[in-house]
């Protein structure tokens, strides 16, 4: 599966473009870093790719190679409630979907938000939140350092870092093809950050999951990513870093 975005543009009002002409492709198993100045629309790109909002122009498409035929099937991403393909949103953060009349299918692109406290239902206990998409196995929970005691609590009773790990468990339980991490570990201390990234990298390698890492932290991006894109500075080629950490 490949995630392709072409000529993406988003605007807040007529003639007030947040960004235009952004191209990016995510390959399975590849770790891509996305950097840019604050307020440039990095989180908006993440939301478009995960299908929460529709771009004002351009398209984001999931391309699935059909094994028996020598062609690709594309399905457009996105739609507010029900889009053309009939994906329907259910989860509080919108990334679990259901086909009308069919079974509940986790959406293949999962997004981890910058502020976990805004991505969970405050009236639900963690158990219900974590199992929203699919039931995570015990191994995943312990890999992310989630204490079983947390699952009996409400979101406000956990710290941001603890909550973020639960959000990550929720997304990874769905076994997504792509994971978009929007400043996933910016509220964590270095040890927890290293721990969580090691867990995520292990899972990504094992499942062939593609990752898009959005972060301000240059050493982190350099450490993690196969390639780094600066969509806002495409003219400035020498800023493109291609380092394998």
């Amino acid at each position: 599966m490949r995630l392709e975005a072409q000529q993406l543009g988003y605007r807040l009002a007529k003639d007030n473009w947040l960004f235009r002409n952004i191209d990016l492709t995510l390959e399975p198993g590849q770790i891509t870093g996305l950097m840019g100045p604050s307020g440039a629309g990095k989180s908006t790109i993440a939301r478009i790719l995960a299908g929460f909002i529709q771009p004002a122009e351009g398209s984001a498409v999931l391309k699935k190679a059909l094994q028996h035929e020598n062609r690709e099937r594309s399905s457009a991403i996105g739609g507010a409630v029900t889009d053309k393909q009939g994906w329907k949103r259910r989860r509080t953060d919108g990334s679990i979907v259901r086909k009308p009349g069919g079974n509940t299918v986790p959406y293949p692109v999962q997004l981890i938000f910058q502020h976990p406290e805004q991505a969970v239902n405050p009236k639900w206990k963690l158990q219900r939140i974590v199992e929203e998409g699919a039931k995570p196995d015990q191994e995943l929970l312990s890999l992310l350092g989630i204490d079983p005691g947390w699952l009996d609590r409400y979101p406000r009773e956990l710290s941001g870092g603890e909550l973020q790990r639960c959000c990550l468990a929720r997304a990874l339980a769905c076994k997504p093809s792509f994971l978009i991490a929007d400043e996933m570990t910016s509220m964590l201390d270095a040890i927890t950050q290293a721990q969580i990234w090691h867990a995520v990298l292990g899972i990504a390698q094992q499942q062939g999951m593609g990752l898009l890492v959005i972060s301000h932290d240059q050493p982190l991006i350099r450490r993690l990513c196969d390639r780094v894109i600066y969509p806002w500075e495409t003219a400035n080629e020498n800023k493109k870093v291609t380092v394998r950490g």
Binding site: L143, I191, A194
Partner: peptide, 22 residues
């Protein structure tokens, strides 16, 4: 020391052993 070595610009390795719960 563990905090320092876990930084992305250093080793980026968490201390061995159990996951840090609390």
């Amino acid at each position: 020391r563990a905090l320092w070595t876990a930084l992305p610009r250093n080793e980026f390795t968490p201390p061995k052993g159990k996951p840090l719960v609390r």
